[in-house]
Nucleic acid binder design. Structure first.
Lengths: 335, 335
DNA sequence: ATGAAAGCGCTAACAG
DNA sequence: CTGTTAGCGCTTTCAT
């Protein structure tokens, strides 16, 4: 059988309390007994039962993380940052793949509550009222990543999407482009959808370029296929553009493929700028110029915020993370 | 405060035992009391404490999964399959990012043991003796994914790497290629390294093509940069090949980039076949022909195996998963 | 059909 | 410095 603290105590001729003290580095024992106990632990191959510990201490040293899609490159970079930071602090992370499904999300929230995780990181999705209510009910720290809520007071970690889109568009303008199209992702996404479109329009206006409705096209998500379809649509609808701002790298790469197939040379005939700076951005042909969100970093920051909330019981300040343009080879200066 | 089973019992005027029975759908209560109890649960917003449950039942309904690198596209597709299946069966998954680091891996194994997970999935890495020993010590079901061990009797789920490499090479040969180079990943990897090289060599031999040492080059991993470096090396060392078999899609894409930069047209001047069939394979320019490993599927299969082991207490049969060639546009028939 | 009570393995007063 | 003991929230005999 698996040895318990009792077995250790018996073997070392001390009480379980003493073993517990030694295990938790609490004061109250001599070097001598410590050695005795450590020896017993060693010999028995004893490992404390974290479940029992969790029951009494009410701290499970585990975090819950929700993603709409764990297998997206986007999510996995954030996860990497979260996991690394959690591990540094001796915590585990339970991943939840919500599939952007309300029922499934609620189910996960319930499970995380039942498993008494110490904190939750909610990523990349609009926070619905029912999620918020469930979250509040749980009464544990929450941090939002790559999403935010202006209705509910939860701390978030994200870039300023409008600003980042503005920067991307402006970058194109500075490179001499005047006819700039945009491929947006989901149309009514209040986090990654509308703000980026607004940033794009704002940049055009501020530079006295006319904004034309036909130059912007919407997809159903932020994936590669959306990029392909939207690019085709754009080419059909309004082919007179010299640059396109894609709302994600995957969209940009989809657009790139279409351009390639149509014999349009990037960046000679057409410039493309992406959004995210995923690892694939540097792997594309040509390497993609894009506005970078430091995803790994964002995961780290959010997790550290969560830990500070867990420790101090306070709430953390939201963090707007700086984006930056990563210049590669998909944009040409045409002036 | 968070309501406990006691609160429910009190409110419903029954014992905690009865509440427990109802919660667990065990026999022994009338419809009437069931309703009373359900009502109390509802009103209190009671959610059972999985930690307390785990302590007595010795089942935590959580699985541990170890990856050398969670943020790789490769890993995240497997994770997706695992998570989906676990969720179907009402289990959670704790992800561990070992970084291919022995110390870190051992640490995770310890944590998973302390947290009393019900089973473990170990992926993509050679199983060292110390891991195996720790695993055995834990006395819980284990399944290996995308790796295997011939020294230790653990069930695995993987494709036949040698066979898959053979198929890829043969595909090139059938398309008229005679001078075929190979970019391998890690040299001494007994799982994803050597077997693929062997498959490549075997295919050449079986087709009476000479195997030339200079046509095979090794990297330090299976990543994009390795692809870039190895392709450059290959071009320098032995430029007289018409096709290359890359040991991973990322390597293939790295090779593709170099070809592009050097003005070598794929597939007109050079054919490239990859390995894995990651999502990026269809996003590349041109879309990459590759040998597919059904990663999501493998994650699912492994998880189901794990569940069957957990339930029946037996061990499962290892599964060799069929690979297949996915024809896209990076290979040209030149005969 | 239902309840009382004994733990699961651990921590945390409290006493000494 | 060390031990005793009362839980943490639940499941599970064993009675009734």
């Amino acid at each position: 059988m698996i040895p318990t603290i009792k077995d250790v105590a018996r073997k070392a001729n001390v009480s379980t309390a003493t073993v517990s003290r030694i295990l938790n580095e609490l004061p109250g024992y001599s070097e001598k007994t410590k050695e005795k106990v450590l020896k017993a632990i060693e010999e028995l191959g004893y490992q404390p039962n974290a479940i029992a510990r969790g029951l009494v201490s009410k701290r499970t040293k585990t975090l819950g993380v929700l993603f709409p899609n764990v297998s997206s490159i986007f999510a996995s970079e954030i996860l990497n940052g979260i996991e690394d930071t959690a591990h540094e602090q001796d915590h585990s992370v339970i991943v939840c793949n919500t599939d952007s499904n309300g029922v499934r999300t609620m189910k996960y929230l319930q499970v995380l509550n039942e498993k008494r995780v110490d904190g939750i990181i909610f990523t990349s999705e609009v926070l619905k009222k029912e999620y918020y209510d469930a979250l509040v009910e749980m009464n544990i720290p929450i941090v939002l990543v790559s999403t935010a809520s202006y209705r509910y007071p939860l701390p978030f970690v994200k870039v300023d999407d409008k600003h980042a889109a503005y920067s991307a568009t402006e970058y194109l303008i500075k490179n001499g482009h005047k006819k700039i199209a945009m491929i947006s992702g989901t149309k009514d996404d209040s986090i990654a959808g509308t703000p980026r479109v607004e940033g794009y329009i704002q940049a055009l206006k501020d530079n006295n370029l006319s904004y034309e409705n036909r130059r912007i096209v919407y997809g159903i998500d932020f994936g590669y296929k959306t990029g392909v379809m939207c690019m085709e649509e754009l080419l059909k609808k309004a082919p007179d553009f010299t640059a396109v701002f894609a709302a994600s790298d995957e969209i940009a790469i989809g657009a790139l493929s279409v351009a390639y197939k149509e014999g349009i040379k990037v960046p000679d005939d057409l410039s493309i700028i992406g959004y995210d700076n995923l690892k694939v951005a540097e792997m594309s042909i040509p390497p993609l110029t894009t506005v970078a969100q430091p995803l790994y970093e964002m995961g780290k920051i959010a997790t550290n915020m969560l830990f500070s909330m867990i420790k101090n019981g306070n709430t953390a300040e939201s963090r707007i993370i700086q984006h930056r343009i990563v210049e590669r080879q998909s944009v040409k200066n045409i002036q």
